[in-house]
Design a protein around this nucleic acid. Structure first.
Lengths: 347, 347
DNA sequence: TCCACCTGAGAAAACCTTTTCCCAATCCGC
DNA sequence: GCGGATTGGGAAAAGGTTTTCTCAGGTGGA
């Protein structure tokens, strides 16, 4: 390991090839290949001898040669424009997780919002003969800055806007919103407000609609959601509007994301309003770094992004294997993560 | 694009090969190859004709075949145990960014803290003949759960503990801490406290030592740093200790990370102590999501992780090209990002 | 006119593995 | 003992590209 131990393997000996294994075992490469792959016919003794030789020599087949022949590279590309962001990370982990067991590796390609970069990455992946592509982004209602519609390999969209006719996986935002509002109802809350992000986001409307639906189904008056930004500042601002004037204050606030929820909780505390005793709060995204830092810790809706990624990986794999998949958007359920910001059920 | 436009290319025609280009141009594959690569000798007219044919046919060379021959796959592996985390993301983006222009793609491998998974990923990468590996982690003072010391391909360590004799890149934590403390001094602060994370982290000591050094160099009394957790709660706790008793309160707090700093700022505000008028605060990491949400926004030390990643990518590339690199750890400077939590210079 | 040299281009090997034939030897039943 | 089936294993092509070698024809000089 140190300088004087060995003549420093500047470039270590090349990997051992099948030919060398065959030579060492005294058979032809064809026989060696078949022995190692469990193909062909030969005596059990021969097969075992070849295997043992391969093991001794530390033989590992060259994926490049295999891929060239099989026209399958056991490699997929993961395209994202959200490397820094919150959403594609768990998603990426899920994709990678679903594929590693099948021996499939993942090329990570961050295209930012740059057409040129996107083009570059897609061409590089195509040249390297990836078996398929998972496209993911930071917004469910926006396209990646690349055209993947006429590729000769399958594409699965996860947490981004799919091309028409493609298969897409997204979180069930409406279901997630229902989960939150229904939790409030179960806890006996009746005056439930909704504070969410900018109207330019599709999910803002999806969640708001589900919020209204649940209230209506339960015969409760629906209040107009307050739309603003995805920030703590807006959460604080919204509290000023909701609780600024005298009158019937909400006893629950369903927030469009965890940062808004944090702003809401901070502002309520500063007004001397107790969470969860006076007002319950539920966030969205279950971003642990935020949800666990609020006082009290924040109950939130988790979009199960890792599962989403796993499903995307598996869907892509079956597409690669030639299984036709039903095109269209599949919605995966969210999950309520209970912490302490919305109280316990009434006795 | 829609169902009736074309017979839906279930599996589109295979990519065009060099052989087809050669046939279409009426030359041999050898000549075609040389024409496209600018090698060999032929009339300018022939070369141009072949190039034009290739362009028309949309020819793109098969990377797999090229790699097999050249023994270079133009592919590297990025190993991390911090997929969800804060640090490896900008770093990954930097690595990818440095390599994409050179036509090098990056395999993303998240090994968590799992030996088996690490082994699996490394073997998969080796089989796929990656040209090199960048190893990165969530802590500068911990090893990844894999042994990369006897690989026959180059390895560069970034933001993780390198093997002896390898090349490693880390942030200059001491320099970063100096930057913070010196900024306070420049602003006329003299009673500077330091609140940091757990003693089990090497960086805690590195930064604390630099903090003491700067104070000593300036003839100021050094106070013992307060060590705790990397959390907001600990930041609030530390304020209670520093400002709880009467006496000479600090006029500046240098925090070990941004979350601690946020706790500090929140607790100061709750005590009616003004930031930055009464007390200046500087954080570490420059995690925008935190630094921009504090009230006031947080001045912080940025570790330039994207640059670190870029440097790591370039270092790996030159190693792959056979340039011997000086082994050992190279430290890259941090950067002070000024927001509003430490005030303006005195007039 | 002849020879040496250059020019343009092709044939073939190489990279490493898989798979499809193919062949020789052995075995079986009659 | 003989024809056919089976068995164990090998030769060779395929996959797509690069590179080295070879070669035919042309050019220039003597």
């Amino acid at each position: 390991m140190s300088a004087d131990a060995e003549p420093a393997p500047v470039s270590a000996k090349p990997p051992v090839t099948l030919r060398e294994v065959a030579a060492a075992a005294g058979v032809s490469v064809a026989t060696a290949s078949k022995a190692l792959n469990g193909q062909g016919r030969m005596t059990a003794e021969t097969r075992e001898r070849i295997r043992e030789t391969a093991r001794m020599l530390g033989f590992r087949p060259n994926s490049l040669a295999q891929s060239l022949l099989r026209k399958r590279s056991f490699t997929v590309g993961l395209l994202t424009n959200d490397t820094y962001g919150r959403f594609s990370l768990p998603l990426m982990a899920g994709v990678s997780d679903a594929l590693v067991d099948k021996g499939v590796s993942v090329f990570l390609c961050n295209v930012e919002d740059d057409q040129r970069l996107g083009q570059l990455h897609v061409e590089a992946m195509l040249d390297k003969r990836v078996d398929g592509i998972v496209a993911t982004g930071k917004r469910i209602d926006r396209h990646l800055p690349v055209d993947l519609s006429n590729l000769r390999i399958p594409v699965v969209y996860a947490f981004t806007q799919p091309d028409p006719g493609a298969v897409g996986l997204v979180s069930d935002d409406a279901g997630g919103a229902r989960l939150a509002v229904e939790q409030f109802l179960r806890l006996g809350r009746r005056r439930i407000a909704h504070v969410s992000g900018p109207a330019s986001f599709a999910v803002v409307h999806t969640r708001a609609e589900a919020y209204r639906d649940v209230l209506r189904e339960n015969g409760l008056p629906t209040a107009e959601p307050l739309l603003g930004a995805w920030s703590e500042a807006w959460g604080r601002d919204a509290v000023a509007r909701l609780f600024g004037k005298a009158g019937s204050w909400p006893d629950a606030v369903f927030c469009g994301n965890d940062q808004i929820a944090r702003g809401v909780i901070d502002a309520l505390r500063e007004r001397g309003i107790s969470v969860p005793d006076d007002v319950g709060v539920i966030g969205f995204d279950n971003w642990e770094i935020v949800a666990e830092a609020t006082r009290p810790p924040l109950t939130s809706i988790d979009m199960n992004l890792a599962s989403l990624g796993r499903e995307a990986g598996l869907a892509l794999l079956s597409l690669v294997d030639g299984q036709p998949a039903a095109p269209g958007i599949r919605k995966l359920p969210c999950r309520l993560v209970v912490r302490q910001s919305c109280g316990s059920p009434p006795q």
